[in-house]
Amino acid sequence: MLIYLIIASVCYLGAWSKAPKKAYQLSFFALWFFMAFRGLDLSSKVDGFYYHNFFENDVTTLAQFDFNILSYTRTVQAKTGFGWGFGLLNAVCKTICPRFEFFQVVFTALLFVLLAMVMRELHLSDQEKCLFLFFYMTQQMLWYFCNLLRQAPANLIAWYVMLHEFKDHKWIKRILLIGVAMLFHTSAALALVMIVAWEWIQKKGTLKFAQAALLPGALLMLFSDKIVGICISFMSTYIDSRYSMYVGMAEKSNVINFGLRMVILFLLCFFYRRVQCEKRDKLLAASTLCYLVGAFNGSLFVRALEYVAIGNYGGLALVHRAFSGTRQSKFVANLLLYLAFMVIFIRFFFTNAEFLIDYHFFF
């Protein structure tokens, strides 16, 4: 745990140093290194076991791999739940080196390549790259990256689709890329639906819609149980039968995390006119959807909201532009943000990621 707290601090404090570019590069590399080479037991006992077991017992080398997607879906995916794209990546790694450690290093490297592509699309300054990495780290990055979740590359592909300015055939390219994401995790189908809604919000007036969403989101959090049941039933019937496991699941959305998303959306609305950025409307629209999707009281929606969570991470990285006043008041504002998110980060370790507390390498 300590190593990740140090990297987060280097990221945030480095943003205000004389060399933010070096702080960002150091933090980015350190994060990849300590995630890629962590002990194999430093992942959720449930997720870690299933991914390791899949690699050892169900993954073949490329010579035996079923390249027919439909056939693979009927056989391997029906048995294991792992999609063709994720299976292919496992097969490539197993062909090169039959050890799960190698797959962990390669998969983590892939995630960081995709993350770098997303950050490039945000057109952030070196200082803001540090801030983006800090805010992503202290919220969901370690959960998705350290658990080797199949949804992690799907999330990043969806973020890229939202941020990239396609010059022509925009929707064809978006659909194709989301199709690639679905080969890793079928829930990426939801990302396409949310991207349509995200475009609609921007056309209707992003700020007004975001402000109007605050109260309905709170009401949804309280009274959304019936809607959640209908959505899960639809997904298990028409997208992937594995979603039926969410039917009747006792786990609910976390009220504290919902409150955090509400505060973030409020901040982005409050500082909207002070933050001049070409991606401003895209990020605010994404943050609004993140808030509304997360308002549905169910664990499935907590996973789904991550497809639009780029609005929160990217938006928070830009908030500092809105701070005005004396140098001392800016320092206090930035210090309060740092302390607040470090508390959130520490809470994450003790409530969701106890397996990461005692860090060690796999070698």
Rank of each mutant, 00 (worst) to 15 (best):
L2F: 14
A8M: 09
F37V: 10
K45L: 08
G48M: 05
N53H: 14
F55H: 01
T60Y: 10
T61Y: 04
T61K: 12
F67V: 10
S71G: 10
C97P: 00
Q104T: 15
T108S: 14
L110M: 13
L111D: 03
V118D: 01
S125D: 03
D126A: 10
D126Q: 14
C130N: 12
F132K: 04
L133Y: 08
Y136R: 06
Y136D: 07
Y136A: 07
L142G: 09
W143K: 07
W159C: 01
Y160A: 01
M162W: 07
M162S: 14
F166T: 00
I175L: 15
A181K: 12
M182H: 06
H185V: 03
E199M: 02
W200T: 03
Q202T: 10
K203H: 15
K203A: 08
G205M: 01
T206V: 12
L215N: 02
A218L: 14
L219I: 12
D225Y: 10
G229W: 03
G229A: 13
F234N: 00
R242N: 00
R242Y: 07
Y243I: 06
S244E: 12
G248V: 08
A250D: 11
E251V: 07
K252R: 14
S253Y: 00
I256F: 14
I256M: 10
G259R: 06
F266D: 01
E278I: 03
A285S: 10
A286C: 02
T288W: 05
L289R: 09
L289G: 04
C290H: 01
C290D: 13
Y291L: 12
G294H: 12
A295I: 05
L300F: 09
V302K: 01
R303K: 04
A309W: 07
R321M: 11
S329F: 02
A333H: 08
I344D: 13
F345W: 09
F345E: 04
R347C: 06
F348A: 12
N352R: 13
Y359C: 08
